[in-house]
Design a protein around this nucleic acid. Structure first.
Length: 402
DNA sequence: TCTGGGGTCCTAGGACCC
DNA sequence: TCTGGGGTCCTAGGACCC
């Protein structure tokens, strides 16, 4: 049977939600009405555009470009910092409103949901439900969304991306040739900046041309991805709305350092602090990691990563940080100027599935230490705990480097 | 004061085994 | 001694998403 799918996408989510929070706290200014962006901190070398207002968009400001570039285009641009606690709260409000319509909701990101409305339409049409949701969110939550209405996830997602903001668009199968095929191929979901130029070289410039091109040639050139893009261009997508929460496949944290660092022992200390964060999140999830991965980025934006299996699955901070340091030593070559350090754990399993081994109780001391630290973090917040003899990352780098 | 941070999935090559 | 070949595991890197 045909599926009935909605895709709900918050318009300029970070910016709208920041605007609402400011108004709630007495601000007279609605930053949705002026040229404004949500951006990182240029002094910390994380100065990119995370979200933009319509007025900023009219100036030509693009998401993910540098704040510096955005200001060139739009000299009176106002920049605001992201507020992730506020975003999480609004995301939850949205989710709970949508739950009134179906429990089959996939939270695709903080500001996007897929809804499987098959069997939940109650004598109404899918389009009417979409319109009602759009209206209720605006009235009850105070921000606007685009809603895509279709028979599969891909088409619903493409539809919600049509004209913005505050719109409801259908993309039925019979509308594909008129609504989707004329669009440039770069608009298709899963076609990014590496693939689009290759398609251009093949004289494939619109989604329609991609849809009509030879699937076998695409497969030869792009492998599985070639099949996927051909199917998407033709509106084919049989994937399900994944409404059951799944365990994460990996957990990672990384930092762009305020200054480049070319000193191995300092990098090791940074890797230790990050490992601590990763291990804490791992324990909160009740998971164990089998693999540790370290990522480095040089001042020239050359990325490299090394990974290694652990002797056994663990959530012990010390075991993860020791492995991370070992990998770091392998990777770091004298004279490298490091801009970013990241630690990731992979191949996660549920704690209950842990293989019993002769060594499973060997790290009792470390485990107890982790437990004590975790309790303090729960009680007073993550930042209250500084590792003995170390400062937090910012202070550490600022005071000891340059 | 130019370029974030957190994810998922895929591919290719080497090691190792039978 | 004329160096097969399939399967699995592991690692490094890359593409894409928001």
């Amino acid at each position: 049977m045909e599926k009935q799918i909605l895709h709900v996408d918050v318009n300029n989510a970070y910016l709208s939600w920041t605007a609402l929070d400011m108004l709630k706290h007495g601000s007279k200014l609605d930053i949705r009405e002026i040229p404004a962006i949500i951006g990182g901190d240029e002094s910390k070398r994380s100065g990119i555009v995370l979200a933009k207002s319509m007025k900023a968009k009219e100036c030509g400001v693009k998401t993910a470009e540098t704040i510096y570039q955005a200001k060139q285009k739009c000299p009176n641009l106002q920049v605001f910092s992201p507020r992730f606690d506020v975003y999480k709260e609004n995301s939850n409000k949205l989710y709970h409103l949508l739950l009134e319509y179906t429990d089959k909701i996939e939270r695709f990101s903080i500001d996007e949901c897929f809804m499987d409305m098959t069997n939940y339409l109650m004598n109404d049409t899918l389009l009417n439900k979409g319109k009602e949701i759009n209206r209720r969110i605006k009235e009850e939550l105070g921000f606007t969304v685009n809603v895509g209405v279709a028979h599969n996830k891909l088409l619903a997602k493409m539809a919600s991306d049509f004209q913005k903001p505050d719109r409801v668009h259908t993309l039925w199968e019979e509308e594909i040739p008129t609504k989707m095929w004329p669009l440039p191929v770069s608009e298709l979901f899963m076609l990014g900046k590496k693939t689009v130029p290759k398609l251009y070289n093949m004289q494939i410039k619109t989604i329609g041309q991609l849809a009509k091109s030879d699937k076998n040639i695409l497969q030869k050139k792009f492998g599985k991805h070639g099949i996927l893009m051909w199917e998407y261009a033709n509106g084919i997508d049989n994937s399900e709305v994944k409404y059951l929460p799944e365990r994460p496949k990996c957990i990672s944290n990384s930092v762009t350092l305020p200054v480049n660092i070319s000193n191995l022992s300092r990098l090791e200390e940074i890797a230790t602090v990050i490992s601590d964060q990763v291990a804490y999140r791992l324990r909160k999830e009740g998971l164990l990691a089998n693999t540790v991965n370290v990522q480095l980025r040089t001042k020239d934006f050359e990325d490299s990563s090394h990974q290694s299996k652990l002797p056994q699955a663990t959530d012990v901070t010390k075991e993860i940080s020791e492995k991370a340091k070992e990998l770091l030593k392998q990777m770091y070559k004298k004279g490298m100027q490091i801009r970013l350090v990241g630690v990731k754990v992979d191949n996660l399993i549920e704690k209950e599935q842990q293989q019993l081994s002769l060594f499973s109780n060997s790290n009792k001391k470390q485990k107890n230490l982790d437990k004590v630290m975790d309790n303090l973090k729960e009680k007073y917040g993550y930042d209250i705990i500084k590792r003995a003899g170390k400062m937090d990352l910012d202070g550490f780098v600022k005071l000891k480097d340059v």
